[in-house]
Structures are given as structure tokens and as C-alpha cells.
Amino acid sequence: MSIEVKDLSYTYSVGSPFQKEALNGVSFSISEGETVGIIGSTGSGKSTLVQHLNGLIKLTSGSVKVYDIDLSIKKPDFKQLRATVGMLFQYPEYQLFEETVLKDVAFGPLNFGATKEEADAAAEEAIRLVGLDFEEIKDKSPFELSGGQKRRAAIAGILASKPKILVLDEPTAGLDPVGKREILRLITSLKKSYVKTVLMISHNMDEIGEYCDRVLVMSEGKLISDNSPQNIFADESILSGTGLSLPHTARIRRMLETQGVFLQGNPLSAEALAYAIADALGGRS
């Protein structure tokens, strides 16, 4: 088991007028190799949840275990935890700060105790991994890069620490369609070759449906569903009241159903949907 969360609750600013319950009795576990999407409207507790996985929020109630690092003990090894769980924040390019891309990417490994040579080697590998031209950009200032390149450099900065688990908070936010596709493709390829487990927060249901094999649905601090995207997007019942909507593909399938056209399975990509519709049409004619 790579992540085990049990009965996790968290309240912000206890005892002040701003007191707010962010998580309430959340339990789930994730095995190595899964790609898990986390969905929920703004303020549903998704960010608070994933920040716990990295020890960025102090555990106050419940338990969190990442591999054999138990966060409920008195002094957990945060360095080891953060090296194990790579966490990419929203708009990660806003965290770049070093003089050169190479130095910036090497920041993580150096913090986690690598020597300079080891860190540089890890940085080089990570920069190549995210598809940037190492020779061309290693000595450039990160601020000279284009928007898409910056985001890749930031992802390299996380990968350089060789995390086993990658947590991504809205990895495609603010990118144009081409940039989005590229990042999603990168994540898929990393998943195959480099990191073992991926957790991805996204507001984009189409992305979640297409790229994740399991989805956690958060609403008002509670985990209200934990299932495959096919089941979660099967109809409106699970998402009703969460402020979320079905992906376009699932929506079209539902509307077809009410018109008496039934499709095989629950296709969640445009290609799969077209195929299923063609199948349904072809069966009759």
C-alpha cells in the first residue's frame, strides 16, 4: 500500500472567528501503480487533503501513512516523506527562483541531502525527462523560458528528487489546449516509466475521465465517492449537490439514453464515444 489515510479530519483556525472545517473523516488507501483523480468544487477540501500527504499540514486527527512513514507519530521524517511524495502545486512556475534552470531543478535533491554532483546528475535526468533541451536551457534563467517551458522546468524540479508518488494540483491550469495535451501526455509517460503512483486534482472532468483509473469525489470536506470514473460518471446521482458536472462524453451518453439510444459501457474519450455511437448505429442499419 503506498498511501493509507484513515479517518482524517482537519479544521482551520480553531477557536477564531475564521474557524472552518476542511476535512471530515476521510479514509482511503491507494496501491502502488494507480492513477487517481481527486475532484471537488473549490473549497471542498481537496487541497487540504493532498497537503497532508506531504506533511505540509500538521496532522491533528486521524492517521496518514505513506509507505512505512507514519505521520501520526511524534516526529515523522518529513524529509524522507517529501522526497517520496513529489508535490506539484498549482501554477508551479511561480516557485522558480534560481539563477539557472539547472540550479533550480537541483534545489530539491540538494535539500534532500544529495551531493552537488548527484543533484546535478538528477537534475539533468529530470530536465531531459520532461522533454526540455538540456544543453540549450541548463544555463538559462528560468524566467527567460516560455510559459509551457517554465511549467516543465517546475515539474522537473519535483522529479529530480525521484519521488515514488507524484501529486499534481491542477497541472494543466492556465495552459492552452496544446500545452494541456503535452502536460497530460508527459504525466502518462512518467507514470509508465518513472513514478509509480499519480494523484491528480483537476477541475476538468474530461481530463479526469480520460486519464485516471480511479476517482475520489470530495464535497464539503467529506469523501463522498471512491470509484472508477466509469461508475462515477455513469449518471448524475453521485455528482449532484457537489457543484461538479459530468464530462461532455458522459453527458452526451446520458442524453442519448433518455432518447432510447443505449451505448456499450461508459466511453470517456471522444474517440471511444464515437466508436460506441457508430456501434449502436451500425447494429441497426
Partner: peptide
């Protein structure tokens, strides 16, 4: 606050 969290996640102390 956000930047500090992001750098902490990269091992900053």
C-alpha cells in the same frame, strides 16, 4: 504562504 508550502515540498527548511 503558497510559495513557502511549494518550497517546503521541495525539501526547503
Amino acid at each position: 504562504n503558497k510559495i513557502m508550502l511549494a518550497q517546503k515540498a521541495r525539501g526547503a527548511d
